[in-house]
């Protein structure tokens, strides 16, 4: 099924959790995740299953003033 990951279409398996997604993306360092504009705390990654069409935002800290 397809979700929207940082604005781009992204294919994932059924019953994919955030934890599975994060692992497959090999994300490094600190990040935070929002699904359909709701923050998902890190403690919820294992039990939060993604649904088709979910809008996922994964953000990090970058330089800014």
């Amino acid at each position: 099924m397809e979700v929207l990951l940082n604005g781009d279409p992204h294919s994932i398996d059924q019953n994919c959790t955030i934890e599975t997604l994060v692992t497959s993306l090999k994300l490094d360092g600190k990040f935070a995740i929002e699904i359909n504009q709701s923050i998902i705390p890190r403690s919820e990654y294992l039990k939060t299953e993604l649904l088709a069409g979910d809008k996922i935002e994964i953000v990090q800290a970058i330089g800014g003033g």
Partner: peptide, 9 residues
């Protein structure tokens, strides 16, 4: 200060 932006997947 830092900015918050999309992670470059």
């Amino acid at each position: 200060t830092i900015a918050i932006r999309r992670t470059n997947i």
